[in-house]
Design a protein around this nucleic acid. Structure first.
Length: 506
RNA sequence: GGGCCCGUGGGUUAGUCUGGCCUAUGCUAGAUCGUUUGGGACGAUUUGACCCAGGUUCAAAUCCUGGCGGGCCCA
């Protein structure tokens, strides 16, 4: 083991998560934060590889579900935004007029979108007549084109996605992968003939999310956001929140059912089989590099990252041992690497001229799931030494090594799932409850820091504000699955199966 | 929008309050040579920094003003 007091390349303990996280993303060589713009990190090859593998999982799911990949322009002319702003203010007016006022939050700001984007208003020396902005998301450019492409019901459903960079002018503190100004973003946009089509799409998105969470080996809270937190123009929004080790939730994915609200703003219509013009129904599904942030946060430990095998840029690191002492070591390791590559594993040989310990720690920091050592001793017995990043070391015969590796990768995945489930459930507690007295609302018990509270809640926005003000936490919304039996709502006391969470969000 | 704090080699850090002893400290990382290699090796040599522009002063990393960059808190 490391001698006490010896700095492990300056990695703080993971229990000090707020220092551990920013340190590990650089020490593990995922990004370089020194680029002179806040919130714009340089992706290093190891980090970019991992992200590309996550994108690969996403692309696989998109292909499986019949989406096609597009690539839309980065710049959007300002006048297109007007349609969107009209939509938002139109919806607001409608809500203000027709909806239960208790569902509205008074602090709602008017479309402050323009303040959150980067503007391009010059071309060379010339001032542009119509300024352009860098996409913060692509509804506007995509729907502008969709309205040209969609003419009849035969064009539907249209299922599209793209994986691109988007931009937000963040003024708050930035954190690698978690809050950045240039966002590596996945967005799927679909168009359907009717509400049911869009509703089915939302169900498909939910299924895709579950499959991805399984492969990334961590759980999440899936919640239908409260009305006041619904994406502008959406009928309803569902969010996927990962529970980070510091008790904060990280929203890693969302899907929105737009009904025909955006279609009305962008004049997205089609001719149905009766020859009548109908508005389309739409959905969007977004995810980002936050998935990688969640992988880092959920699985890492005091010694560095632990990559889930599904996205590990290197699944097996091969270490020749004492190659100088036995000339047969090197060719044997190379043959082993070739064999494993042909079996479909991502493999690398580390033949650097370094002390073995140094190399071991290197790959532990990077979170490579399996390490294989092969030296003269192993050569004699025709086996090699296999170590798992999650712990454990065994001798395995070289004969049939591929299936041993497969099994071990699955073991690592399972172990990561167990650990992350245990970790997440430790951070969720039952809400102590609130009581109204002559002095106002009071908590029925003390709250712990860095904890997420679960409760039955069936109140309106005013009731939610009572909870949020009192706890300093945010209500995530209705989560699935709900309670199986009715429980009294924490504020109103009426029985409900609606299960919700209060959390500090990133 | 309001308030507060901070900019020193690639990273981290001492020095700033109280100007001079700073030709700027330690750790880490990097380079070269040699000895090493089944869990963080050692020796020798060596590269590398006071955010920018003004000002005060005999003298500025240190004090003042502004800019740029970064962080925190409150709305």
């Amino acid at each position: 083991m490391a001698s006490p007091g010896k700095a492990k390349r300056g990695i703080p303990p993971k229990s000090d998560f707020n220092n551990w996280y920013p340190a590990i993303v650089e020490i593990a060589d995922l990004v370089d934060k020194r680029y002179p713009i806040k919130g714009m990190d340089v992706w290093k090859p190891y980090g970019w590889n991992a992200m590309s593998l996550i994108d690969g999982l996403t692309r696989f799911q998109m292909r499986r579900t019949g989406h096609e990949e597009y690539n839309f322009p980065l710049l959007v002319p300002e006048d297109l935004l007007d349609k969107e702003n009209q939509l938002v203010s139109h919806l607001k007016a409608a809500r203000d007029a027709g909806v239960d006022p208790s569902e509205l939050r008074m602090t709602e700001e008017d479309a402050g979108f323009k303040k959150e984007v980067y503007w391009v208003d010059r071309g060379g020396d010339n001032q542009l007549e119509v300024p352009m902005f860098l996409r913060p998301t692509s509804e506007t450019p995509m729907y502008t084109m969709f309205s040209l492409w969609i003419r009849s019901h035969a064009d539907l459903p249209l299922k599209t996605f793209q994986i691109v960079n988007t931009f937000r002018y963040e003024t708050k503190q930035t954190r690698s992968f978690i809050r950045v100004r240039e966002i590596h973003f996945f967005e799927a946009h679909t168009v359907h003939a009717d509400e049911q089509g869009a509703t089915d799409q939302i169900a498909e998105d939910a299924d895709v999310v579950q499959r991805l969470l399984h492969e990334l080996c961590f759980p999440a809270i899936i919640s239908k956001r409260p009305v006041w937190d619904t994406f502008p123009g959406a009928w309803h929004s569902t969010a996927v929140d990962v529970i980070m080790p510091n008790g904060r939730t990280l929203q890693v994915a969302t899907y929105h059912h737009y009904r025909d609200q955006w279609a009305r703003a962008f004049d997205l219509t089609y001719e149905d089989s009766n020859g009548d013009t109908q508005f389309c129904h739409q959905t969007t599904f977004g995810m980002s590099e936050r998935l990688l942030g969640a992988v880092v946060g959920m699985h890492g430990d005091d010694n560095g990252l632990i990559m889930p095998p599904s996205i590990a840029p290197i699944q097996v690191i091969l270490m020749p041992v004492a190659a100088h002492a036995d000339e047969n070591v090197k060719p044997k390791v190379e043959a082993l690497a070739t064999h494993l590559e042909r079996s479909g594993f991502r493999v690398r040989i580390d033949d650097r001229d370094l002390r073995p310990g140094t190399k071991h720690y290197d790959w532990e920091i990077k979170g490579v799931p399996i390490r294989l050592e092969l030296g003269p001793r192993d050569l004699a017995s025709n086996q090699c030494t296999l170590s798992l990043r999650t712990g454990g070391k065994t001798e395995v015969p070289i004969e049939g090594i591929s299936s041993s590796i497969s099994q071990c990768l699955e073991t690592v995945s399972e172990e990561l799932r167990n650990r992350s489930h245990a970790q997440a459930s430790e951070l969720i507690r039952t809400f102590p409850g609130v009581t109204q007295s002559t002095v106002g609302w009071q908590l029925d018990g003390p709250l712990e820091d860095d904890i997420i509270y679960e409760l039955a809640f069936d109140g309106n926005d005013a009731d939610a504000e009572v909870l949020e003000k009192l706890t300093g936490l945010t209500l995530l919304g209705d989560c699935v699955p709900p309670y199986t039996e009715s429980i009294p709502c924490a504020v109103t006391g009426k029985p409900t199966t609606r299960r919700q969470h209060l959390a500090r969000m990133y």
